[in-house]
């Protein structure tokens, strides 16, 4: 998709520039903005190095584990399907803690582990469970204390006031996360997306595949004589 957007931007720019007579401005901006790009990226090095250093200290000091313990009670409310002693809990707690602290590098492996653990509680092979959708609702809306990249880009342009967005970001990201979580809670019970109705539709279409690594206590009982046709590997977004 980025291919089309990029080609669209430059082609429209040249056509528009030709029509409005701004074509020399279009040319000048290629050079000017290529310069700006490198200037900003170079300005980003120092502040990114500082935050990466600080994050390494947080990680080595075990702050993720500490914070993970603190948020565990909230998570039990958001993931009622996950048994209390299941390893998915600690993986998710670490993942959210790393996100809150802004430790991007550490967050991804924790997140992949959390998703893999939740998959052991998925009776199907390829349909997202409510818990998996909730994990995604929280990560796509981001939970962060310090928006490192945004601050870095700002300080690369101007140092004064670069950090003034921290408080507004904390408020805005809380609002977006609550929106994502509430939408998930509402949507997961809507006819179109409800777990039971998706399963029924898949059985009727003969595309349901059972997860042979399922460890939960509510396996799906398939109707007699059912044989899966086998789905495709395509991700439907």
């Amino acid at each position: 998709m980025m291919n089309y957007i990029w080609v669209g931007l430059v082609v429209i720019a040249v056509i528009f520039g030709a029509v409005t007579g701004n074509i020399s401005g279009v040319l000048d901006n290629i050079f000017a903005f290529a310069d700006t790009a490198v200037e900003i990226a170079l300005g980003l090095i120092g502040i990114m190095a500082f935050f990466c250093g600080l994050m390494n200290v947080m990680e080595k000091a075990g702050l993720c584990e500490k914070l993970g313990h603190l948020i565990a009670p909230i998570m039990r409310k958001l993931f009622p399907e996950v048994p209390e002693d299941h390893p998915a809990n600690s993986a998710m707690a670490l993942y959210f803690a790393a996100n809150i602290l802004g430790i991007g590098n550490a967050a991804t492996p924790f997140g992949l582990k959390a998703m893999a653990e939740l998959q052991t509680l998925n009776p199907t092979k390829d349909i997202a469970t409510n818990a998996q959708c909730m994990l995604m609702a929280i990560s796509t809306t981001s939970i962060t204390l310090i928006p490192v990249t945004a601050i870095g880009l700002r300080s690369a342009v101007q140092v004064e006031g670069a950090a003034e967005i921290i408080a507004p970001v904390i408020i805005a990201t809380t609002i977006s996360t609550i929106t994502g979580v509430v939408c998930s809670l509402v949507f997961q019970n809507m006819k179109r997306w409800k777990w039971e109705s998706v399963i029924e539709a898949e059985i009727a279409a003969g595309t349901l595949e059972i997860n042979e690594h399922y460890v939960g206590d509510k396996p799906i009982v398939l109707p007699e004589g059912y044989k899966a046709k086998g789905g495709s590997d395509k991700v439907y977004l």
Binding site: N122, I127, A128, Q132, C133, M136, T140, C183, V235, L237
Partner: peptide
Amino acid sequence: GVSKTRHCIAAG
């Protein structure tokens, strides 16, 4: 390997 993401994109 989950390909049916249900309401995830809408909520995100």
